[in-house]
Design a protein around this nucleic acid. Structure first.
Lengths: 160, 160
DNA sequence: CTCCTAGAGTTGACGCGACAACTGTAGCCG
DNA sequence: CGGCTACAGTTGTCGCGTCAACTCTAGGAG
């Protein structure tokens, strides 16, 4: 079934390029965000998600679901962000272990300031250098990969 | 209704999908490699690069150049791999600080065992979900991004 | 009531990756 | 010779991300 050599040299080259390009892009965006707004892109994602939450508060599980992250990752991230006073955790009154996550004033303003410029950076570093064919290819692969993963291993908590 | 003015909703969706798909893929590949061969993909990259080196030895800088990694990253990785007895560092004879990196027997066999199955996993999780047009588009973007990065930031330490 | 389980959330350990600061050697120039 | 610089490599620190193990609460079965 499988060839002796699983991939051709061209495929290895493609693979290597793809990984490296992705890493370079991530580094670039993270640097920009850090320099201009003092936050990382993981922090950005959390801030924006909270900012868009109606009521301004979410539970950890909702955040994880909405971000597509594992809960433990969210918990760790929130710990770091709480230390930096971007969010706070308030015990949900009388509701046991449930916790409400909220933006602090600092977190809110970081979210609002960062969102436009981060979008502009993504555009500059990514979309501007992308043909529509390339965008379509990447999008198709991404959707497919996510769908396949959800089909084969629905590990991230999925209420249902 | 976000303040997401810099990018269209479709672009944000593409971006978000891509980030997540990439992470899922990496996790999948890393899990497979860990389960089947007891190594990570970072370790795999180093092992294969050393395995293909003529003479079986490389210096840290060559490794960094060949992998497209920063030297500090290589040094940290080598420390971990040395602890796990996958490689060893031998002082280059009488040549001051220069160091030769070599595979151990364990490292060599890990490399040889892992390469086919990792290739097969990459194919299964990545290439099988791509048409050749999509692969070409992704390859083009990757090369473009890497070239652009090398043009804009070749690090001041490298050139006089 | 007590035990048992399920779910939400947290924690610790560990590896990856980036950056900055450091060590040590070679070579050059006064 | 002493000092300056360039370069190769290492180290420390920190944030990200995963996994496994843990705590705490609620709810159900005996």
């Amino acid at each position: 079934m499988a060839d002796r050599r699983a991939l051709t040299p061209e495929q290895w080259e493609l693979w290597h390029s793809w990984m490296q390009a992705h890493r370079l892009l991530q580094r670039e965006l993270d640097r920009d965000l850090q320099r201009d707004h003092g936050i990382s892109k993981a922090e950005f994602s959390v801030l924006v998600t909270l900012h868009e939450a109606r009521g301004g508060a979410m539970r950890v599980g909702e955040l994880a679901e909405s971000l597509g992250w594992e809960k433990s990752r969210v918990a760790h991230q929130l710990t770091r962000m709480e230390n930096r006073e971007l969010v706070d955790r308030t015990d949900h009154e009388s509701n046991g272990r449930r916790v409400s996550i909220r933006l602090t004033a600092k977190g809110r303003s970081a979210a609002e300031n960062a969102i436009v410029s981060h979008g502009a950076n993504i555009r500059r570093h990514f979309f501007d250098a992308l043909t529509s064919d390339q965008a379509a290819a990447i999008h198709a692969w991404s959707r497919q990969t996510i769908d396949r993963d959800q089909a084969t291993g629905p590990e991230p908590a999925n209420d249902g």
